[in-house]
């Protein structure tokens, strides 16, 4: 999957198997199929918020370069590496469609925020705890009759 990655590849969160939220700029993600969960620091959290909007690799890279004090070439390299990790962990998928035309690329800030290479941190200590009741989005809803 990651070998097919191009700058214009449209990135989409794997909503079927992944739950995610961004808290104070940090992204928290869990792959409900594997039970593994992940965090991404400030820059990674920003990248995730761009992916959720349906952005391309290039759009994300440009947004990162605009928001943080980092050259576009480095932002592009870091974003590509992070995106490959996200694909390997099945947290995102490549969409066949084109990126959202209206997807905002993030505002350029007057005072660029300090840049740190985005990092995906993986944890495996809770998989057994969530094994009993994994959400099953593909299941048809049942009529609930009990309490």
């Amino acid at each position: 999957m990651s070998s097919q990655l191009h700058d214009d590849s449209c990135l989409v969160a794997n909503d079927q198997d992944v739950a995610a939220k961004v808290v104070d700029g940090e992204a928290i993600l869990i792959n409900l199929t594997s039970g593994l969960y992940y965090t991404m620091d400030k820059v990674g959290g920003f990248v995730w918020s761009m992916i959720v909007r349906g952005s391309s690799v290039e759009q994300v890279s440009e947004a990162v370069a605009a928001r943080y004090s980092v050259p576009l070439a480095q932002a592009r390299e870091d974003v590509r590496r992070l995106v490959r990790e996200l694909l390997d962990e099945k947290l995102i998928v490549l969409s066949m469609g084109s990126p959202e035309a209206a997807a905002p690329v993030g505002p350029a800030v007057e005072n660029s925020q300090p840049y740190e290479t985005p990092k995906l941190t993986r944890f495996d200590d809770m998989a057994d705890m969530f094994a009993l009741d994994p959400p099953l989005p593909e299941l048809p809803a049942l009529k609930t009759g009990g309490t």
């Binding site: 739950a19 939220k21 928290i28 869990i30 409900l32 965090t39 959400p135 989005p137």
Partner: peptide
């Protein structure tokens, strides 16, 4: 499922 996913994320956040 949305409630369940949100609950799991809250538990992870609390633990972190």
């Amino acid at each position: 499922n949305a409630v369940l996913k949100g609950g799991i994320l809250d538990m992870i956040q609390g633990s972190l």
